[in-house]
Amino acid sequence: MQRVNMIMAESPGLITICLLGYLLSAECTVFLDHENANKILNRPKRYNSGKLEEFVQGNLERECMEEKCSFEEAREVFENTERTTEFWKQYVDGDQCESNPCLNGGSCKDDINSYECWCPFGFEGKNCELDVTCNIKNGRCEQFCKNSADNKVVCSCTEGYRLAENQKSCEPAVPFPCGRVSVSQTSKLTRAETVFPDVDYVNSTEAETILDNITQSTQSFNDFTRVVGGEDAKPGQFPWQVVLNGKVDAFCGGSIVNEKWIVTAAHCVETGVKITVVAGEHNIEETEHTEQKRNVIRIIPHHNYNAAINKYNHDIALLELDEPLVLNSYVTPICIADKEYTNIFLKFGSGYVSGWGRVFHKGRSALVLQYLRVPLVDRATCLRSTKFTIYNNMFCAGFHEGGRDSCQGDSGGPHVTEVEGTSFLTGIISWGEECAMKGKYGIYTKVSRYVNWIKEKTKLT
């Protein structure tokens, strides 16, 4: 034993070699072989497995989906700052455009905790909710729209109204504003409101030439003092309507412009014939205590009207009353817009006519005020429907199939267009061939041609 100890002390290297040989010859039971080890760690190889990531292109799944990435790591994937920024906006807080917040056709661009709407022409605001041009839906104005110097929408209202708090709607500024039905039992019968379409306001006024200088022999019209197929109006439903009495009662109609003036057809009036105007009328054979009678003290036909040349060209006249009318729910003026808007309103496509005229061709006159909704007829169809001249200051309205029309005794009465609950004068009943005849239409004086003249002559002093 002493000898062994001496050998170990003198030859430590020998001992180490012996131990190493023993270990190498022993069977290893701690580690699995290569094949079995792979069965336990069965993990798919990654895209760049075996390579240094710093030297390969980034992978979106590896960089940002398996674990949260930084902007720089995302930049490695896209290799483009702009594309990385677009991805980053949604990656950080989701897609803010998912709810489609942009209105009126706006395009949404996502941002971090926010979004941006790219608005089409005519709109602005956070969600493109603000109209900035009158060309689109009248700028959301209830009545009139004008573009300011910086191309912003400025709404306005006709006389007797003021802008509401929203700067879009119009509200009454006087007790009985024009064009409004205020009798409670008839307010439910107000005709369907007309909503502004998209309009090209630059070209809204037709490029028409008034044929002022045409000389033409007097034409022989049949029954051209021209509501057939209409309905009984309720008291106060058309408070701007008046009836004219002269040699015979209810020979023509008219509309209240203001307390002192009536507008009617020029062919209705004769110099030297006494005319009485009755406002607030409903049943011409009954006294309903809503009527107001006034005498006409002055007749002003349009300066281009000449019955000797043509009885229905420039067929418009103004009547001055001896005493002002007292405005109330049964006696209310009709609204008159400017030339541009009167023309736009007419193009809405349908209007209402009213009167006490004959209820059928050569038949009896109506006792109760009649009204009828009539569609506008395109000019080409209008011209083809008659052998008589249709001037540019006239328009056609009615039904091709016949059966409904204005008729004798309705002449001078109103053709009105309702705009968001307020009625505007767009025409004056003038003439036609018979009444409600198939293929024939009622012919009306186009008020847009005469609004400046009306307003100039009827100013209240």
Score class of each variant (00 low, 15 high):
residue 357 G to N: 08
residue 118 W to Y: 02
residue 331 V to H: 01
residue 418 E to H: 08
residue 246 G to D: 06
residue 254 G to D: 00
residue 452 N to I: 04
residue 108 C to N: 00
residue 339 K to N: 11
residue 273 V to H: 15
residue 172 P to D: 04
residue 40 I to Q: 15
residue 338 D to W: 03
residue 455 K to T: 07
residue 243 V to H: 06
residue 227 V to D: 15
residue 358 R to M: 07
residue 21 G to Q: 05
residue 297 I to N: 05
residue 200 D to E: 09
residue 305 Y to V: 02
residue 183 V to T: 09
residue 381 T to N: 14
residue 129 E to M: 02
residue 105 G to K: 04
residue 390 I to M: 07
residue 101 P to W: 02
residue 193 E to Q: 04
residue 99 S to I: 08
residue 73 E to K: 07
residue 300 I to W: 05
residue 178 C to T: 01
residue 366 A to P: 14
residue 284 I to A: 08
residue 352 Y to V: 07
residue 54 E to F: 06
residue 432 G to E: 09
residue 388 F to R: 09
residue 317 A to P: 01
residue 280 G to Q: 02
residue 137 K to L: 13
residue 246 G to K: 05
residue 83 R to W: 05
residue 457 K to W: 07
residue 41 L to Y: 12
residue 34 H to F: 08
residue 24 L to Y: 07
residue 189 L to F: 13
residue 249 D to K: 14
residue 425 L to S: 00
residue 79 E to T: 15
residue 84 T to N: 11
residue 367 L to M: 05
residue 396 C to Q: 00
residue 200 D to N: 09
residue 196 F to A: 15
residue 193 E to V: 13
residue 262 I to W: 00
residue 383 L to C: 08
residue 290 T to W: 10
residue 318 L to T: 01
residue 142 E to I: 04
residue 215 T to F: 07
residue 78 F to Q: 15
residue 385 S to P: 03
residue 227 V to C: 08
residue 146 K to G: 06
residue 425 L to A: 00
residue 293 K to L: 12
residue 272 G to T: 12
residue 375 P to T: 12
residue 243 V to D: 02
residue 49 S to G: 13
residue 231 E to I: 10
residue 147 N to R: 12
residue 345 F to C: 02
residue 396 C to E: 01
residue 68 K to H: 09
residue 153 V to W: 06
residue 147 N to V: 10
residue 73 E to D: 10
residue 249 D to N: 04
residue 283 N to T: 12
residue 22 Y to F: 15
residue 268 C to M: 00
residue 75 R to F: 07
residue 117 C to E: 01
residue 410 D to M: 15
residue 271 T to M: 10
residue 179 G to M: 00
residue 446 K to E: 05
residue 295 N to Q: 13
residue 443 I to N: 01
residue 281 E to I: 14
residue 377 V to K: 04
residue 246 G to C: 03
residue 335 C to F: 01
residue 235 P to A: 10
residue 445 T to Y: 04
residue 68 K to P: 08
residue 246 G to Q: 05
residue 283 N to V: 09
residue 158 T to N: 05
residue 253 G to S: 07
residue 262 I to L: 03
residue 359 V to Y: 12
residue 375 P to C: 04
residue 409 G to W: 07
residue 300 I to F: 06
residue 236 G to T: 05
residue 437 M to Q: 11
residue 256 I to R: 00
residue 176 F to Y: 13
residue 30 V to E: 09
residue 345 F to Y: 13
residue 96 Q to T: 06
residue 309 I to P: 04
residue 172 P to K: 06
residue 73 E to N: 10
residue 23 L to C: 06
residue 339 K to E: 12
residue 352 Y to C: 07
residue 418 E to A: 10
residue 16 T to N: 04
residue 419 V to Y: 11
residue 68 K to C: 04
residue 15 I to R: 06
residue 316 I to C: 02
residue 60 L to S: 12
residue 374 V to R: 04
residue 373 R to S: 10
residue 71 F to R: 12
residue 258 N to C: 02
residue 387 K to T: 11
residue 110 D to E: 10
residue 366 A to I: 08
residue 194 T to G: 11
residue 110 D to W: 08
residue 246 G to T: 08
residue 324 P to C: 03
residue 110 D to C: 03
residue 194 T to D: 12
residue 90 Q to W: 07
residue 248 V to F: 09
residue 199 V to L: 07
residue 169 S to G: 08
residue 259 E to H: 06
residue 81 T to S: 08
residue 411 S to Q: 14
residue 333 P to S: 05
residue 426 T to H: 01
residue 389 T to S: 07
